[in-house]
Design a protein around this nucleic acid. Structure first.
Length: 373
DNA sequence: TCTGGGGTCCTAGGACCC
DNA sequence: TCTGGGGTCCTAGGACCC
């Protein structure tokens, strides 16, 4: 397929990321918390099992951050304000932010917006735009508009592709912007460790170190055949491109279509009776089924996740004989997966996941999107 | 210190078919 | 008796992200 692109000057991609989003939303409705160490996570009880979703900047100064067990956060800041996660409130705030971003124009035409999650999005110029002006100035317009409409602060990364824009945001935080392009890539990123790149976590960084690759520049110069052989035919070459800062600059405004829904539950007390485990799997399946019914799409595949104590997680899954929304059938399928799990240890977490049939019976949205090119 | 809950994509290997 | 190559589907699991 041939796609015609209109190249008008440099390609700019902006990455917009709300500052301490969840904590900021909480402070908006409790202004007296402004400036205090606020920790949002779990059910808001730091003596329970759970982890930190977001900590305010004041809390981060004490070394509290996302993913940390609430009990650890409590020990670090005994007088912090602990709040429960309130998903619907963040959904609403997020929708306001995204609507504000979507309403912006750049170069005389509406921007394109690719939403990445509750609190971040890529933003690019729409087709057939006019003069874009200075990207850094536009970034300030974006920040001001979001602040005015939602009272939330954000940071903006400016790049010549999505990878560089995304990484640039970290340098702009908080309440600022930063520009990362081909021209300053090596200077800014070259000597940093590979896990400073978006897509490389600690596991991959370790594998790279074993190959003698420690920095971004070393990764960019690595032999692509070796990367492919050691890390996979797709992932290897992709890692090499990450090292050079090479990535797509196409902002895709196609609305996100979920492929699956799942529910997980952490037990405050480990389950040792497998009758309890089976019942919990049935309950979780009932809830996930409600989610996919809301979506109007049947399940085609069922999976479970079981986390044992001491820490050890297994997943099992199966493909259904056909599409199904039948509660009994789905629950029985999920429970049957427990037969493939060793039952010799206590269970501290269970998850059930339903993969859904594709929208429009295979190729609907994708086929539709090609007609807009 | 003791580990959430929601997702995505990629890979390897086995089964099965022609 | 020993041995093909290609393709698809399924399952388990790894890694990563917010």
């Amino acid at each position: 397929m041939v796609q015609v692109r209109h190249e008008v000057g440099p390609r700019w991609v902006l990455h917009v990321d709300l500052d301490q989003f969840i904590a900021a939303v909480e402070v908006l409705r409790r202004p007296e918390l402004e400036g205090l160490p606020v920790v949002v996570g779990g059910r808001g009880d730091p003596t329970e099992r759970g982890v930190v979703s977001t900590a305010s900047y004041a809390a981060r100064e004490y070394g509290v951050g996302s993913g940390m067990p609430l009990r650890v956060a409590l020990r670090k800041i005994p007088d912090a304000i602990f709040l429960p996660v309130d998903g619907p409130a963040y959904d609403a705030a997020s929708a306001e932010v995204m609507a504000t971003l979507r309403s912006l124009t750049w170069g005389g035409v509406p921007v394109l917006l690719e939403v990445l999650g509750w609190d971040e999005a890529f933003l690019g110029p729409g087709a057939d735009h006019g003069e874009l002006g200075d990207a850094a100035e536009f970034a300030e317009v974006v920040r001001a508009e979001v602040l005015e409409a939602t009272r939330l602060h954000c940071s903006v990364g400016i790049g010549d592709n999505k990878l560089r824009a995304k990484i640039a945001t970290e340098f702009g935080k908080p309440r600022g912007s930063y520009q990362l392009t081909k021209d300053n890539w090596t200077e800014v990123m070259g000597e940093r460790p590979t896990n400073a790149l978006w897509g490389i976590g600690n596991k991959t960084a370790k594998k790279l170190t074993a190959l003698g690759i420690d920095t971004v520049t070393q990764l960019g110069r690595a032999d692509v055949d070796i990367l492919a052989a050691e890390l996979g035919p797709t992932i290897g070459p992709w890692l090499g491109r990450l090292g050079r800062g090479v990535a797509s600059a196409t902002v895709d405004p196609t609305p996100w279509v979920p492929r699956a829904h799942g529910r997980e539950q952490t037990f405050q007390e480990d389950l040792t009776d497998w009758a309890d485990v089976e019942q919990a799997v049935r309950d979780l399946t009932t809830r996930v089924r409600e989610d996919i019914l809301r979506e109007g799409r049947p399940a085609v595949r069922v999976g479970i996740k079981v986390r044992f104590k001491p820490f050890f997680t297994v997943t099992r899954s199966l493909t259904l004989p056909g599409e199904s929304t039948d509660e009994q059938e789905l629950a029985d399928a999920a429970v049957s997966l427990l037969d493939r799990v060793e039952k010799d240890r206590p269970v501290c977490l269970l998850g059930v996941r339903l993969e859904m049939a594709e929208v429009g019976g295979g190729g609907g949205p994708r086929a539709a999107s090609t007609t807009t090119g």
